[in-house]
Design a protein around this nucleic acid. Structure first.
Length: 605
DNA sequence: AAACTGACTTGGAATAAACCCT
DNA sequence: AGGGTTTATTCCAAGTCAGTTT
């Protein structure tokens, strides 16, 4: 059943539930099973004829682009209505208490809650907030409140702090009650039925109103994110399902039955005018299948990457400027794992770039730097305004090309003026079916993990040491992909605490050894075991300290979740007898259930 | 061919829950 | 038991990319 799963990929990409837990409901002769664990299989399982029929159907659907044939859900959960502040909680304008109308008060509380955050000190944030706040004010309020600097929200701020403190101090029973209520909501709204399965929904709660928190220098930070009502919601479900009911006295914007998409509900958000969706959890069939497909595409790239590399190197010499630019950009995407870099509407978002949208001001060329030749220095803000800074030596030809691209340009001009992501991706599509810029990131991330694991793993290592090796391999990928984080606020302290523990353990160890020496005469072997145990604990602590230190500014989560073929990790665990729990927590195991089930110790990406 | 739209993946921070020590 | 710390989960913004419209 399990052998040879990874050997490949030409066969159908279908998931079948192979383990059902309990039968929970029956709809139109279709058995719905509770939370299923999916497996990828080559062939439809020979269990029942009914099953076979469905498998065939599903295969058919796959080719016509439909994503499901039955979809039933209860619709989203709305944000709780606004609760006005108690009268004792005051807002002050120009030093005098002032009672606000409910709409103005609500928006004021959004700001008050953020008083301790850096956002509220930023000019753009304040300006945007103030502008949108005024729209909620009554005309009296509007004429009275004319300067945000004269507004004092601190009483409100204290109130919310006290509230959250009170929540922490709640009795066990009260906490349990809340937990149970959340669980009830989850059970009622947190699942849907897609085809034959009950599936977990990723985000069944509608985003509550609040102030928009853009990242980096976002021109719209502080704007009011309005409250979403049933009238804003488009429901998507199958015609023959029980349609979700809107809250009493309200209507949905629309109910549609589009099985070419995977979402259950959507609404248009008012800051950028983009659409937000309610979709399934990563553990679902529809997400897992897509994920698997992504890694299979990356593995196909592995087979032809040499050819593609040879090609773009050749294109560095092209007579056509557009070809040279395309080839150099692709080289960066491949070598540095840069993102594609779509154009963005100026003034609507933070000024960030990817490969194709790099500007002259983002690179510096050094014919010679220290002991290296042809060095390119990158310095730009990427996705989420995370800084990318890197100095790399490149081939002479690339360097010369870059000099050419820079000729007669201003700092704010595009480096690749004859290229965009659309052109690049069309070219990539011709090189390999399904190839786009981001496949290189997936490919390079996964292949790096595999190669690093091979290099770092050592059979003599203890389990904690092996896990450290795994994390280091993961770290190599995170560094490649520039996944950074702000060092945790308590980082230094946490390191100190760990060091204290290590010191203590060291003392324990020497004490135990002394004891052993003294006891030697009495032939007490038990003391030897004792020091061994302490040694082990000490080693574990030291490994932990190393791991934490190395991870100070690196975020491992994103690469683990989105770039690393989970079958590599699963295979590694099997090969080195490391329990999978050491690598993946519960959520991650659910997301990667297909891989855990599929990969053997000899899996190769 | 440029601009726009829609659907989906990817991203770090914030928050909640679990854990660990006294 | 409680409080501080660590880990897991939730949140929602910000990308990619294909298809459609202008």
């Amino acid at each position: 059943m399990k052998s040879g799963y990874h050997t490949n990929s030409t066969r159908s990409l279908h998931l079948y539930a192979s383990r059902s837990v309990t039968v929970s409901s029956v709809i139109r002769d279709t058995v719905i099973v509770n939370i299923s664990v999916y497996r990828f299989e080559y062939k439809p399982k020979k269990v029942k004829t009914e099953h076979d029929k469905k498998a065939k159907k599903r295969k058919h659907e796959y080719t016509d682009g439909s994503k499901w044939r039955f979809l039933e859900h209860k619709g989203p959960v709305f944000a709780p209505p606004y609760e006005p502040l108690p009268d004792k909680v005051r807002f002050y304008y120009d030093g005098k208490p002032m009672k606000l109308s409910a709409p103005a008060e609500e928006v004021a509380t959004f700001f008050a809650k953020m008083l301790d955050h850096e956002y509220t000190t930023k000019d753009i944030f304040r300006k945007n907030f103030y502008k949108d706040w005024r729209k909620e004010m009554t005309s009296e309020e509007k004429s009275k409140i004319t300067d945000l600097n004269k507004c004092n929200f601190s009483d409100m701020n204290e109130y919310f702090k006290a509230q959250s403190e009170a929540r922490k101090q709640m009795s066990k029973e009260e906490k349990l009650k809340i937990k149970e209520e959340n669980e009830r909501l989850l059970q009622e709204y947190g699942f849907c039925i897609m085809d034959n399965h009950k599936e977990r929904i990723g985000n069944f709660r509608i985003e509550p109103p609040g102030l928009f928190r853009g990242r980096g220098d976002h021109p719209k930070m502080g704007m009011l994110k309005r409250r979403i009502r049933p009238e804003d919601i488009i429901i998507n479900c199958s015609k023959d399902s029980k349609h979700p009911k809107p809250p009493p006295g309200t209507k949905w914007k629309e109910v549609r039955h589009d099985n070419k998409v995977t979402w259950l509900a959507s609404w248009t958000e008012n800051i950028q005018g983009s659409i937000k969706y309610i979709m399934l959890n990563p553990s679902s069939r529809i997400k897992g299948e897509k994920d698997w497909q992504k890694y299979e595409t990356a593995r196909r790239l592995k087979k032809c990457v040499d050819r593609i590399r040879a090609q773009y190197r050749d294109d560095w010499k092209s007579k056509e400027m557009r070809i040279r630019q395309r080839a150099v950009a692709l080289y960066f995407i491949d070598k540095l794992a840069l993102r594609a870099g779509n154009e963005k509407e100026e003034g609507e978002t933070a000024d960030t770039v990817g490969c194709c949208s790099l500007r002259v001001e983002h690179i510096k060329l050094y014919p010679k730097l220290d002991d290296q030749e042809y060095v390119v220095e990158f310095d730009f803000l990427g996705k989420d305004s995370i800084r990318y800074y890197n100095k790399i030596p490149v081939e002479k030809r690339v360097f010369k090309n870059l000099q050419l691209f820079l000729e007669n340009k201003q700092p704010e001009d595009d480096l690749f003026d004859r290229l965009n992501t659309s052109i690049l991706n069309k070219h990539l599509q011709e090189l390999m079916d399904g190839l786009t810029a981001k496949v290189f990131r997936t490919y390079n991330a996964s292949i790096t993990l595999q190669q690093q694991l091979k290099e770092l793993s050592c059979s003599d290592d203890s389990i904690p040491a092996k896990v450290l090796s795994y994390n280091r391999a993961n770290r190599a990928v995170a560094i490649l992909c520039n996944h950074q984080r702000a060092p945790p606020k308590t980082f230094e302290k946490s390191m100190q605490n760990l060091q204290t523990k290590i010191d203590e353990k060291q003392n324990q160890l020497s004490a135990a050894r002394k004891q052993l020496k003294a006891a030697k005469a009495d032939h007490k072997a038990s003391h030897d075991d004792k020091s061994k145990k302490i040694e082990e604990q000490l080693m574990k602590l030291q490994v932990q300290a190393t791991d934490r230190e190395e991870n100070k500014q690196i975020a491992l989560g994103t690469s683990k979740l989105n770039y690393l073929d989970p079958r590599i990790s699963v295979a590694w665990c099997k090969k080195w007898a490391v329990p999978i729990e050491k690598i993946y927590n519960k959520t991650q195991r659910e997301k990667f259930a297909w891989a855990i089930d599929m990969a053997e110790k000899d899996y190769e990406f």
